[in-house]
Design a protein around this nucleic acid. Structure first.
Length: 866
RNA sequence: GCCGGAGUGGCGGAAUUGGCAGACGCGCGGGAUUCAAAAUCCCGUCCUGGCAACAGGGUGUGGGUUCAAGUCCCACCUCCGGCACCA
């Protein structure tokens, strides 16, 4: 028997052979560059609105993809495919956040170069991602460890280094435009240079950092969990060390305000707001008795100034030394030493019990001239506000606790409106921190808390005793790591101790090849061992050393979404026309674990680039959606040690990528945390099998005889239009699980029919295609189409056709359902009422009583009140 | 301790945002098909009582608003996530 080859393929392939089908279409998409994305200037994009769907790019770990990755990636892929069918020019890229500690630790253990490990891991993860059939434009991949990429990460760093923040304009400006005050100018070149350095947005600092002796490296706060390193659980101590910092604090207000412009989950915005931690209050100066010095404090409760009975400085406060009296010197010094060696954790841990020392000095309360003692205690942090506080024990829990412990006076200055509370507070049994009415406050008595705050702030300003002030919890960003596998800083240190930055034209500065990746253990980074690289001779013949710190992993991920718009540009980080066309990102999907840091840092970088004219929008990510966590089948977090990790490769092999994708979407709401279930995968796999059998004759491989070119019956038409409506609206609203349910309902209906109108079947295939693209493409082809369905127009529905002709209404008597009646959908209220009251069961339930009120909710129910 | 989020069948979850609780899927029970099994198809499946029609109860707990509450209000309990003396 001879048949055309095309037919033969059909004949042999009657069953739903997902492995073969998926491979076939993945190859097809790659070979035909189906998802190549034209830029705005490309004729292929003409007349199409743009849509940018971004995934948080993965770290290419040796363990490969876990099932959490495909969740967000499938969601974004569904949206990307849907938007393409709706006529959008869609940018949907992927890349690799490939610098980072794991590859370096592996290098330390085995001597394998991190670049090798990274390449191997990227190749493996790319294979896994491609096996899921995501519609990425593979020509736009970025790799943060690629020198063609990190050249521009270094370039952005230089932008930070070469900029200052203009407080008046509230924006960054090139350092050349920095006005030099006359008194600095007059002090000579070095003073000018120091002044300029002090204004740069990237600067060096010797602040104490989290030093982990076991890892031989400094850790960021977020890498320290519960006082030990997140990775490895080693102890961490505080140690002052030279670091590069980025002046993110200058952007605190704009980062806060920008949140009002974005469509993000409220919970994420709240996390960022809390992290920035803005508070408004006043700064007040307290004169120190017997010294020509004043102690400046920040308070959010200037209305409680009359209740300040003592002061507390952080142990590190510079004034401590100066004002401590001889007789208290020893105890104070001991206390300071103790505080200095404690880690942050120890300080908070041990501070369940307040500790402190009296300095022997006194300050004068500017509002009433009272002499009050000055203490030091580690419950006051040097890094927040002014590093000193006025203590108002009657109205601050911490001060209250401290005062009780050290027997310091407590003076009520706010009376609670609740008399019961007022009694308790007066008896010093509780500390009242809320709003109330002022007492014991001289001429301010009787004012409400908010009024008082306003009045006294003005009063303080008039008297020159203080002023309104704003503080933020946000700290500058510690931007250097003592590691090998990161971007090198384009910075040199001269023999004379000067810092000079490389010129942009000298970039990139490549990482040197080394074969010993171990930390030096002294805190000096591994790069210090690459002496050939480190030591340089400057054009003037003098010697210099390269910066040996490297950038943290966040660096590369701060701007990768910009590079996707122009990934191969060798002359610039990205072309501004392309940036203008694609940005902002319309939809950003990723895990909530990046809610604060990654999203805050990239917003910060984006704003700098915006200030300098490189980006056109103030915010990078318009809409943000967080996918939830996927737990193991035992409802526990997936982990190797629990042995409950699901391997995507195994799932794909057994059920196929389409089943995997569909299951991940069917599990539940995208944002929810939910457990994995292999039986659930089996369930959606059965659904796809059923779709296949409903359309394909499993003997011949051709469409079944049930598929005919005939118009659809009324019921099928209605269900089809309802399904188009539901699937469309659910994709728009990220309700993928319910969209799938609807498709199941539809196919259950269709499978029962002996005649399946071809047009209806084709419409269904299009609806299914964003979710399960491989099977959809295959069905589309077998239904007689020659080209991919990726750009076929998305089906539309007719709202009239969605409506049922007849509806069933529940009839309640006093809120309890007694009967159900069937009526024409357009029946008027009068008819409904009559029919409802005519029901025997309803009559019986009413028990002869007359209806007092009949509530009719059209096409829903009737409720009779008797 | 503070700030978020969530509690609905045996399980994952639906519920037009105040209008028939449990869609869809899993699991389970029964039947058909088969020599048998897998696969598939059909029926059933919130709980209690009853052969049944049916009756009663039911969305973490207790109260409230309403003709009507999973949904709104008050108080509480449990679980998950984040923060950690931020003046």
């Amino acid at each position: 028997m001879t048949l055309a080859t095309g037919r033969t393929a059909f004949m042999q392939d009657g069953q739903y052979d997902f492995n073969r089908i998926e491979k076939k279409w993945q190859d097809f998409w790659l070979a035909h560059m189906t998802f190549r994305t034209p830029d705005g200037s490309d004729p292929a994009a003409a007349g199409k609105p743009k849509y940018y769907v971004l995934d948080m790019f993965p770290y290419p770990s040796g363990a490969g993809l876990h099932v959490g990755h495909p969740e967000g990636y499938t969601a974004s892929d569904i949206v990307a495919r849907y938007k393409r069918m709706r006529g959008f020019n869609v940018l949907h890229p992927i890349g690799w956040d490939a610098f980072g500690l794991p590859a370096e630790q592996y290098a330390v253990q085995t001597g394998t170069h991190p670049a090798q490990t990274t390449q191997k891991n990227i190749d493996n993860m790319r294979r896994q991602i491609q096996a899921l059939g995501f519609s990425y434009d593979w020509d736009r991949q970025v790799d943060t460890t690629d020198i063609g990429y990190y050249k521009w990460t270094q370039w952005i760093f230089l932008k930070f280094y070469n900029s200052w923040f203009d407080e008046v304009q509230q924006k960054a400006r090139p350092i050349e435009e920095l006005p030099i005050p006359d008194e600095i100018q007059s002090q000579g070149d070095e003073a000018v240079r120091n002044y300029i350095d002090s204004q740069r947005l990237a600067y060096e600092s010797y602040a104490p950092v989290n030093w982990c002796p076991a890892l031989g490296t400094v850790l960021a706060n977020e890498e320290v969990v519960g006082g030990v390193s997140e990775r490895g659980g080693h102890p961490v101590i505080r140690k002052p060390m030279r670091q590069w910092m980025l002046r993110i604090t200058k952007y605190a207000e704009r980062l806060l305000e920008g949140l009002n412009e974005v469509d993000w989950p409220e919970s994420i915005k709240k996390l960022q707001q809390d992290w920035i931690g803005k508070s408004v209050g006043a700064e007040v100066d307290f004169k120190v008795v017997g010294h020509d010095a004043a102690l400046r404090v920040f308070t959010t409760r200037p209305d409680t100034l009359f209740g300040a009975t003592y002061m507390v400085m952080a142990p590190e406060h510079p004034l401590v030394e100066q004002i401590t009296t001889l007789e208290h010197k020893e105890a104070v010094t001991a206390y300071r030493q103790q505080a200095a060696t404690k880690s942050d954790l120890d300080r908070t841990d041990l501070s369940k019990e307040k500790t402190g020392q009296f300095t022997g000095a006194y300050a004068v309360n500017p509002v009433n001239g009272e002499k009050i003692p000055i203490w030091i205690s580690d419950y006051v942090l040097i890094s927040y506000g002014t590093g000193a506080i006025m203590a108002v024990p009657a109205h601050d829990d911490r001060d209250f606790e401290f005062a009780k412990k050290f027997n310091l006076p407590i003076i009520q200055v706010v009376r609670p409106d609740d008399p019961e509370l007022a009694k308790e507070a007066a008896a010093e049994r509780l500390c009242f921190t809320g709003d109330g009415t002022a007492i014991n406050s001289g001429q301010f008595d009787g004012l409400s808390t908010p009024e008082f705050k306003e009045k006294i702030t003005t009063w303080l300003e008039e008297k020159g005793l203080g002023k309104k002030a704003v503080n933020y919890k946000l700290r500058d960003w510690l931007f250097s790591r003592q590691r090998y596998w990161g971007e090198p800083f384009p910075i040199l240190h001269t023999e004379g101790g000067q810092v000079i930055a490389m010129d942009e034209s000298e970039l990139p500065l490549g990482l040197p090849d080394v074969d010993d990746f171990r930390p030096t253990g002294t805190g000096e980074p591994p790069l210090a061992k690459a002496t050939d690289w480190v030591n340089v001779t400057l054009p003037d013949g003098t010697k210099a050393r390269r910066e040996t710190n490297t950038m943290p992993q966040w660096a590369g991920s701060c701007w990768y979404y910009l590079r996707y718009t122009d990934p191969k540009n060798a002359a610039a980080a990205f072309d501004s026309e392309k940036e203008k066309y694609w940005l902002p990102v319309d939809l950003y999907i990723g895990g909530a674990e990046h809610a604060v840091l990654h999203l805050l840092y990239s917003r910060f970088w984006h704003k700098l680039l915006y200030d300098l004219g490189y980006t056109s929008s103030p915010e990078p990510f318009k809409k943000l959606v967080n996918q939830g966590m996927i737990l193991g089948e035992d409802n526990q977090k997936m982990s190797k040690s629990r042995g409950n990790v699901i391997n995507p490769d195994a799932v794909i092999e057994q059920y196929g990528a389409d089943s995997m994708r569909l299951y991940e979407m069917f599990m539940g709401p995208l944002e929810a945390t939910k457990p994995w279930s292999m039986q659930g995968v089996e369930g959606v796999h059965r659904f796809l099998n059923k779709v296949w059998r409903t359309i394909i004759d499993t003997d011949s491989g051709a469409p079944t005889a049930a598929i005919q070119d005939v118009p659809a019956d009324e019921e099928t038409t209605r269900l089809l239009h309802q399904t188009i409506k539901k699937v469309t609206e659910d994709i728009e609203g990220f309700g993928f699980n319910t969209a799938i349910s609807q498709m199941m309902i539809f196919i259950n209906h269709l499978a029962r029919r002996n005649v399946r109108p071809k047009e209806v079947v084709e419409t269904f295939v299009l609806l299914l295609s964003p979710f399960a693209p491989h099977i959809a493409e295959e069905l589309w082809q077998r239904l007689g189409h020659c080209d991919t369905l990726a750009y076929a127009p998305w089906p539309t529905y007719d709202p009239q056709l969605c409506k049922a002709k007849e509806v069933e209404l529940a009839v309640q008597v006093l809120g309890k359902i007694k009967d159900k009646i069937v009526l024409a959908a357009d029946a008027d209220e009068q008819t409904i009422r009559q029919k409802a009251l005519a029901s025997n069961k309803v009559q019986a339930a009413m028990n002869g009583k007359t209806p007092k009120k009949v509530i009719v909710i059209k096409s829903r129910l009737v409720n009779i009140v008797v």
